[in-house]
Amino acid sequence: MKVLMVDDDASMRRLVQTVCEEAGWDCRTAAGGEEACALFQREWPDVVVLDVMMPKVDGFEVCRRIREVDENVPVLFLSARDGIIDKRIGFSFGGDDYLVKPFNEEELVMRIEALVRRSRRSRRDGEAAAPERPERFALGPFTFDEVRHEVLKGGEPVVLTPKEFQLLHHLASHPGAVMGKDELIEELWGEEYLDGAISIAVYVRKIREKIEENPAKPAYLKTVWGVGYSFEA
């Protein structure tokens, strides 16, 4: 699990990072609001632990910006401000929980675990409710056949390797959705390959050479810089 911890207090960042790492989690830290927003879109963490009182861009504003790009990631405010008004503001900006400093380290771990567990359960329920894409479907000039592992463009077959087909089919099954490198590796190869030498960029380049009129200026398989890839047709 990946945690993003945001606080202008270096000692607090080190404390939370130590607590997270002892729990077996990967913790990235940011010292301010602008840095946090940039780091969020680069790392796409599973949960955000967010201080309120920071110079220039405070925690409430950071939460508001996060909600513009991700409605579901859990946000836990960690603040010395314990007034009910502060808590109400935090929740109104899209926060999911509010823990007052100083805090018990074990309680922090439990709250993070509860938030992520609730988020994942909600995501699974949403996926279960969503209609499944049929085994054969058309998207723009493309036809995808999952049973035959076949892609047609304008009625002509596109010759793809099995992994190229899986990658393209997965992206086309979620048209317009931006998927990060780690997300694609975990989905197509498995979590155990996340630290391996698999290069999604190489697969993308080879697919573009087979489906794009101009691979240097792709019209279908697009790169969203700093985030991942998407397919639109």
Rank of each mutant, 00 (worst) to 15 (best):
F40H: 05
E107C: 03
M110F: 10
P218A: 00
M110A: 14
L4Q: 10
Q166N: 14
E21S: 08
W44S: 11
G33Q: 07
A197Q: 14
P55M: 07
K87M: 08
R205K: 14
D58E: 10
L78C: 11
W25M: 12
I112E: 09
V151L: 04
D46V: 03
R208D: 06
V62R: 04
V227G: 05
G90R: 07
Q166A: 15
M12G: 01
A114D: 14
L171C: 07
E105S: 12
V62A: 04
E183N: 06
R123I: 08
N72E: 15
W25N: 09
V49D: 06
I211L: 00
R121C: 04
I200Q: 03
V73T: 13
W225Y: 14
G155T: 03
I85F: 09
E22P: 09
L167C: 04
G83S: 13
R111E: 12
D8C: 01
V73N: 10
V109W: 05
V109P: 07
N214S: 12
L221E: 14
R67Q: 07
E212P: 11
K206R: 15
S79W: 09
G95N: 03
E232P: 05
N214Q: 14
E212H: 06
A197V: 13
L108A: 12
A177G: 09
E212L: 00
R42A: 12
N104I: 07
D97R: 01
D86A: 02
T143N: 00
I112W: 08
G228D: 07
K163F: 07
L39T: 13
V109C: 06
N72H: 15
D51L: 00
E127M: 04
I112A: 08
I198K: 10
D8M: 01
L39D: 09
A30V: 03
